[in-house]
Write a protein that binds this DNA or RNA. Sequence first.
DNA 1: CATCTGTTGTTACGATCCTACAAACGCCGC
DNA 2: GCGGCGTTTGTAGGATCGTAACAACAGATG
Lengths: 251, 251
Amino acid sequence: MSTGEPEAVDAFEQLGLTSYEAKVFIALHQLGAGTAREVADITDVPRSQVYSVAESLEDRGLLEVQQANPIRYRPVSVEEARDTLRDQFEREQDRAFEYVETVKNEPAGEETQEDIWTVRGRDRVDDRTVDILSQAEERIVFGTRLSELITEPIERALAERAAAGVAVIIVSRREEIKRQFAGVEGVTVEDPPAHRTDDQRSGRIAIADDDGILLSVLGGEGGETAIWSSGSLFATVLIQLIEASDEMQVQ
Amino acid sequence: MSTGEPEAVDAFEQLGLTSYEAKVFIALHQLGAGTAREVADITDVPRSQVYSVAESLEDRGLLEVQQANPIRYRPVSVEEARDTLRDQFEREQDRAFEYVETVKNEPAGEETQEDIWTVRGRDRVDDRTVDILSQAEERIVFGTRLSELITEPIERALAERAAAGVAVIIVSRREEIKRQFAGVEGVTVEDPPAHRTDDQRSGRIAIADDDGILLSVLGGEGGETAIWSSGSLFATVLIQLIEASDEMQVQ
DNA sequence: CATCTGTTGTTACGATCCTACAAACGCCGC
DNA sequence: GCGGCGTTTGTAGGATCGTAACAACAGATG
């Protein structure tokens, strides 16, 4: 069995159920259908609790009740349960963000503030990288040691920008990465400067024009952390520093 | 403003955030970006708590941190936040149901048990109605006073069954409902028996062959509750009772 | 330079609420 | 009475809420 029950219970809790609710729901799927006693017998949920827990599950649309003696419970199918939970989730999301939309203010003059931001987590760095790359109007520099850090959306953003006339430069020592972009129109592939120490913990670098930059490192536990800045003087200066050191080839 | 902040906070809580997390996230969208003090000033979240709450939001991928003095926080866009939450939700759902799939047992002989089940809630009654109708091989009777209780999926199920050779009978007094099905091949439209009291709280009735039935009523607060049975002797008998009374026209 | 003042970020600690868990109760059929 | 069913009530533990104290630091004042 690939996953244990405790993990499934935990996942259901993340979805908003209590652990009792999760256990009863799972038990009913094992039984097909059953009474409070039968559920209590194969779980550590006290029988007296099954009734109220089942009622709460009924409210959520995850099981149906047979009014008989004893009361019998029947779980809805996995497909129906997933759809029901998904609907509830989407509804709550609409409700939550509707208000946010009405009161939100754009980060006034974000593009002109001297801000360097930190983002943690592989997926979030992916998103921010695409954001940065998509802003470029003239020139992109993108570099990484690891081909798995070039996700499909990033690849698409690079290709899209190249097609729009942006000069795209890919910097890597890795042969597979070089090959990946070798034939693409508007894309140049380069080796990094020889003097640059290829630190094992370096992640990726993305430069857009002279005012957008993202730089990531791989943390201890495999997590990726990036700093980025866009439209700030800080970004401009940082980019100049990085590129100047490239050209000078100083040791 | 169509919705108040308390409602938005409640919705975020349903999505798994704490009320503090919700308030800080909303406040940061109002500010665009800001420090712990600025957030505390426009919410009732104590300043000293903002730091840890923001850290937790960062872990969830809902905001980014600027390491400066003072620390500044920047919320991710509404679109990115929604995507992030949706991804987390789908991941948890996969994790939760993966285990259920491995251990579930089909409701052994469900079709032969003497079961009447209860389902509550408009949407869930919709689903179960479609299930019942889809089982029919020979004959369907579907009746309702309210045209809004004939949803698009129900209409499709009726049409699909009619096309498959099932004799479909729609029972209603409402002209619009009669018109809706007037021209459809394989569908007959009838008036209900004159003696039948058209109770204001009656909802819909669906009969499939002689062994599937669903009957719903409209509860006090606009909620719909249905009982249904399929493949049971109970269903057969109930159907016979209902149809016999029709034919006899007993007052 | 020393002192005062105000802010920042951190930590600790009750109060409060909800869930998990247990036990007792009335009810009904046998 | 007896045993199972369904309900109700009560207790313990944990997480969140809310308040407060703390050291570190920056700017102002003398």
